[in-house]
Nucleic acid binder design. Sequence first.
DNA 1: TGATTTATGTACCGTTCCGCATAAAAGTGG
DNA 2: CCACTTTTATGCGGAACGGTACATAAATCA
Lengths: 233, 233
Amino acid sequence: MVQKRNGATPHATPQAKKAKPTQPLAASPGPKRRGRPRAYQPDVALARALDVFWKEGFAGTSLDDLSAATGMNRPSLYGAFGDKRELYIKSYEAYRDRARQRMGEAFAADLPLREMLERIYAIALDMYLSGKDGPRGCFTVMTATSEAVFDPAIRDLVITGLVETDRFFARIFRRAQERGELPASADPQVLSHLASGTLHTIAVRARAQVPRPELDAIVKGALDLMCGAKAQS
Amino acid sequence: MVQKRNGATPHATPQAKKAKPTQPLAASPGPKRRGRPRAYQPDVALARALDVFWKEGFAGTSLDDLSAATGMNRPSLYGAFGDKRELYIKSYEAYRDRARQRMGEAFAADLPLREMLERIYAIALDMYLSGKDGPRGCFTVMTATSEAVFDPAIRDLVITGLVETDRFFARIFRRAQERGELPASADPQVLSHLASGTLHTIAVRARAQVPRPELDAIVKGALDLMCGAKAQS
DNA sequence: TGATTTATGTACCGTTCCGCATAAAAGTGG
DNA sequence: CCACTTTTATGCGGAACGGTACATAAATCA
C-alpha cells in the first residue's frame, strides 16, 4: 500500500539518448528535422494533459485519458514526456509558468493595493472556475493534497509553489507599505499568509462548486481585512 | 473519461434486505445475533478504512489496501459497508463526527476568544499532522479537491462540512462580540471565513509536510488579525 | 442433532491499468 | 531510388483493479 509509489523513479529518461542534436529552443520551424515530423505540438499537448490532470488528479487519470486528450497515442506520449509521473510534473510546471506569468503581469501594472489584490483574485478565480466541464480549483492545492505526500520531488515542487505565492503577496504588501497605503504596524508576512490562505480556501470551495458570488464575497471580506477596511465599503 | 464516475450509483444497497431486525444501536453485546459472529468491530474497521482513505485518497486506495487495513476480506467489507464509494462516504461521516465532537468540546469549554481559537487550531493541527506515516491534512479538503467534482452526493457532504465549520467559527466570533471581546464593527461572518481559510491553508501546507513551527506561526499571525493583535505579542 | 442464519476465506471474472515491443509511415540525405 | 532517422500506430503482456460466486465455518433455534 505504500511501496507502490515510486518516490525516486528508476526510469531511464527516454530523451536522454539524444544529447542535444536539434532544437535547443522550443518550436523553431526552420532547420529541417530529420525523421517523420511530429503530429502534435508539444506545448499544446502538455496543456491538454494539464487539463486532464487538473480535473481528475494523478491517480484518477489514465494514460488512455491522456492519450485521448492530447491526440497522441501512448508510445508517443511516453517518448515525448516520459512516464505518467514525469508528464504530471511537466504539467505542473506548465501550470506554474502560466500562473506566474499572469500574476507577473498584474504585479507590473503597479496599481494601488486594493485594486491590485482585486485583480489578482479575479485572475485566480478565473483560473479556478475555468474548464469546460465544471470548476477545477487550484492545481497546486490539488497536488498538495494528493501526490505531495508520497513523492518527494513533487512535494518540493508544491512547496516551491506555495512559498513563491507567499513571497509574491509579501512583496505586494511591502510595496504598499512603502507607499503609505498600509500602516507601519502591518506585518507583510502575516498579510501574505492571509492572502495565500484566501487563495486556498476559495480554491477548495470552487472545487466543491460553491457559486462564484459566494467566493467573491469571501474575497471581498478578506480584502477589507487586508486593506484596513477603509473606503470602498 | 467522464462517464466512468458513478454520480448516482445503481448499486442495490446490500444491507437493505434486513429491515431492522437487530442492533438498532451500535455494539450492543447482549441480544444474541443469529449466525456466525463477526470477526471485526464495525466502528474500528471504519476508523481503519478512514485512515487509508485519508492518506491515499479515494482513487489511490484499492480494496486490497482497505482489506489489509481493516483485517476484513473483500466480501466482508462489501457486506458490511457496501462498495468502495459507500465505504468512503461512511468514512467521511465518521471523520466529520469525530471532528465535530472534538470541536464541540472546545466550544463548550467557553474560554476567552483567543484561547478558544488557540485550542481549536491546536486540535486541528493535531488531526492534520497525525498519522503514523506522515501528516495527512484535512479529509474534507482532500475530498473537496478530488471526488467532490464528480460525485454530487459527496460534494453535498463536503459543502455541508465547509459551511458547518464556517458557522461554528461565526458562532464563536458572535459570542465574543457579545462579550465585548471584539469591536462592534467586526463582522463575524468575514472573520469566520478568515478562520476557515486559515484552517484550509494549514491543511494544505501540512499535507506538503511544511514543519509544524511554520504552521504555528501562520496560525499565530491569523489570530493576531482576528483578535485585533492586542496583547499576547 | 439437524436446519437455518450469518460471516468468512478462496478464488475467480471481466476490465482497466501502465509500459513496451514491433511494425508501418513519413520525412531527409545521399 | 535507396539508406537512414524519427514518429505514429497496433497491440500485447503482466499486473492490479473492483466486484462477486461459491464453498466453508460458526453461531442460534427447533
